[in-house]
């Protein structure tokens, strides 16, 4: 394997790692809690921006790089800072938007937040350098690495971060919190009758999901060294939801598989030969393909590849013994109602 294709693989793996972070996070707020957060990528952006401005030094007039903060913090702290910022944003948005969970209302409010935020960021250079965006962000181990092999340097960082986040997600999946979140999603009125504070549960899920998005954003800005407001995140948003849906909503492992598949599609499309005179067709083809993939998944297998895992299972032998249970004859099956 020559170094060029090796580099390509390393880069694809880093992209997978970032998308997987996004997917696992979205699996918590959308997969488990059922919140259709269409502004998810705004959380990613906030994570990127705050991660960046925490790691950057003071504003650099010579380079025309204006921004707030600029505390020259080490990158692990900056990544954490990005996650916290996104989590806080999720909290604010949740307090406003999650009162009525009808998907349409939620989608429009979240988009509204995104749009306002995006416009403010683009038009206020002193925040995050406006349209130009942040650049010159100090990359982890960047000073000592060869830029040509940087993907290999960054890959372990992504692996460790993703690994930690996956462990947390697994812990949540199997916990009382996870059960409660899913119960609220299944029937919020019943959950309320069972003593659950529904709003609090939903907001906490949203905050966690957004924090994951923030980490993904921070990883992005540290990998690339720069970040600016792209016009639209529709493509990325579709990709994220597709990843969660393909893998199976409410399933951490499924979210990882889904991310792998979607990343594969998105990267693989590069290999379609460019048509002379219309070099930008690849981007359009990618968009169309992804849209079709999402629709296909929703049509053929809306529950995804993996079913939602039951958080708790009983180990028959031990527990039955402990209780000295003799199995009762099963209830007669009768017709419903």
């Amino acid at each position: 394997m020559n170094s060029a294709s090796g580099l390509w693989i390393a880069n694809a793996l880093v992209n997978f790692g970032v998308l997987a972070t996004i997917s696992v996070g979205l699996n918590i707020s959308f997969g488990m809690a059922g919140i259709l957060d269409l502004s998810y990528f705004f959380s990613v952006a906030i994570g990127a921006y705050f991660g960046g401005v925490l790691a950057l030094g003071g504003t650099n007039a010579a380079l025309d790089l204006n921004h707030i903060l600029g505390l020259s913090l080490p990158w692990p702290i900056a990544i954490l800072g990005g996650a916290v910022a996104s989590g806080l944003l999720g909290l604010l948005v949740g307090l406003v938007a999650l009162r009525r969970l009808r998907s349409d209302y939620l989608a429009i409010v979240l988009f509204a937040v995104w749009s306002i935020g995006y416009d403010i960021i683009s038009n206020t250079p002193s925040l995050f350098n406006g349209i130009t965006g942040l650049f010159n962000v100090p990359q982890p181990f960047g000073a000592t690495s060869n830029p040509l092999t940087y993907p290999w340097v960054f890959l372990p960082i992504v692996a460790v971060v993703l690994g930690l986040l996956v462990l947390v997600a697994y812990a949540l999946e199997r916990s009382g919190f996870g059960r409660t979140v899913r119960s609220v999603r299944d029937d919020s009125d019943l959950a309320e009758a069972m003593g659950k504070a529904v709003m609090s549960v939903r907001i906490r899920s949203m905050v966690v999901g957004c924090a994951y998005a923030g980490v993904a954003g921070a990883l992005t800005i540290f990998y690339v060294g720069a970040y600016n407001p792209s016009a639209w995140f529709i493509f990325e948003t579709i990709a994220a939801f597709a990843a969660v849906l393909i893998g199976g909503r409410g399933n951490v492992f499924g979210a990882l598989i889904g991310a792998f598949i979607i990343n594969g599609i998105a990267s693989g499309v590069q290999f379609i030969p460019t048509i002379a005179g219309r070099l930008d067709l690849t981007a359009d083809f990618r968009e169309a393909l992804l849209a079709l993939v999402l629709m296909l998944v929703l049509y053929i297998r809306p529950h995804g590849v993996f079913r939602e895992r039951l958080g708790t299972r009983t180990r028959d032998e031990t527990t039955a013994d402990e209780l000295s249970i003799e199995s009762q004859p099963p209830l007669p099956i009768e017709s419903v109602q």
């Binding site: 059960r179 899913r182 119960s183 999603r185 299944d186 029937d187 019943l190 959950a191 409410g250 939602e308 039951l310 958080g311 708790t312 299972r313 009983t314």
Partner: peptide, 9 residues
């Protein structure tokens, strides 16, 4: 009921 959860859950 919480239809995607198990009876135990």
């Amino acid at each position: 009921q919480f239809h995607t959860l198990s009876v135990l859950e």
